[in-house]
Computed example of a mutant assay.
Amino acid sequence: MARQRSGAIISSGLVLLVAGGFCVYARASQSGGSQDRYPVMARFISANGLAVGANVDMDGVPVGRVTSIALDPATYMANVGFTLDRTLSLPTDTTLSIGSPTLTADTALLVQPGQSADRLKPGAVITNTREPLSLEQQVSNYIFGNGGLPSD
């Protein structure tokens, strides 16, 4: 009887140890190593569809993570805080937009680097942002506009 109980205790302990290890791994993969990133802020007219924890993508590659979304009561603009990989040195005229890189992907903060010689510093505020377009607006623009095709 005592032998069965000790086996159950050992088995339960191993299960808890594996579950704890998975939790630590999941937490580390979500935070993405914050010491290798620096904080940046952006101001949007609307942060519709964006959520805390969303990826920051550049050319289809995740380069950061959204850390906060808050409404500025003075300007009624959405302040989006996010982090960028320290290896990136983006120009100050970088443009940000909110969208989905593919039809099946989650909404992300999309980075389009600019051409300026000056570089963003940690804590910088980016105001060169584009309002997010809903799927309905994108389809409407394509149907009733030229869909981004060159005009004749």
Rank of each mutant, 00 (worst) to 15 (best):
M1W: 09
M1N: 03
A2V: 12
R3Q: 12
Q4W: 08
Q4G: 00
S6W: 12
S6Y: 09
G7V: 13
A8G: 08
I9C: 04
I10W: 00
G13V: 02
V15I: 15
L16K: 02
V18Q: 02
G20D: 02
G20I: 10
G21N: 13
G21A: 11
F22V: 13
C23E: 10
V24C: 10
R27C: 11
R27I: 11
Q30A: 15
S31L: 13
G33R: 14
G33D: 13
S34L: 14
Q35A: 12
Q35D: 09
D36H: 12
D36I: 04
R37A: 15
Y38K: 05
V40T: 06
A42E: 06
A42Y: 01
R43G: 00
F44K: 01
S46G: 01
S46H: 07
S46N: 06
N48T: 08
N48I: 02
G49V: 07
V52S: 04
G53A: 06
G53R: 01
N55V: 01
N55H: 10
V56G: 02
D59V: 01
D59K: 09
D59C: 00
V61T: 13
V61S: 07
V63C: 10
G64T: 03
V66N: 08
V66E: 01
T67K: 05
I69K: 04
I69P: 06
I69E: 15
I69Y: 00
A70G: 10
D72L: 11
D72N: 14
P73G: 05
Y76N: 15
A78G: 00
G81E: 07
T83M: 09
R86C: 11
S89E: 15
S89V: 04
S89A: 15
S89Q: 12
S89M: 03
L90I: 01
L90A: 07
P91R: 03
P91Q: 03
T92E: 11
D93C: 11
T94P: 06
T94F: 03
T95P: 09
I98G: 02
L103R: 11
L103C: 02
L103F: 06
D106K: 15
Q112G: 07
Q112C: 07
Q112M: 12
G114H: 12
Q115N: 10
Q115K: 07
S116Q: 04
S116M: 10
R119Y: 03
L120M: 12
L120G: 02
L120C: 07
L120I: 05
P122I: 14
A124D: 15
A124Q: 02
V125L: 11
I126T: 04
T127H: 07
N128L: 13
N128W: 00
T129C: 03
T129L: 07
R130M: 12
P132V: 02
L133Y: 01
S134I: 00
L135W: 13
E136F: 15
Q137L: 03
Q137P: 05
Q138E: 09
Q138P: 01
Q138F: 00
S140R: 09
N141M: 11
Y142L: 15
I143H: 05
F144G: 10
G145R: 07
G145H: 09
G145E: 05
L149R: 14
D152C: 05
D152K: 10
D152Y: 01
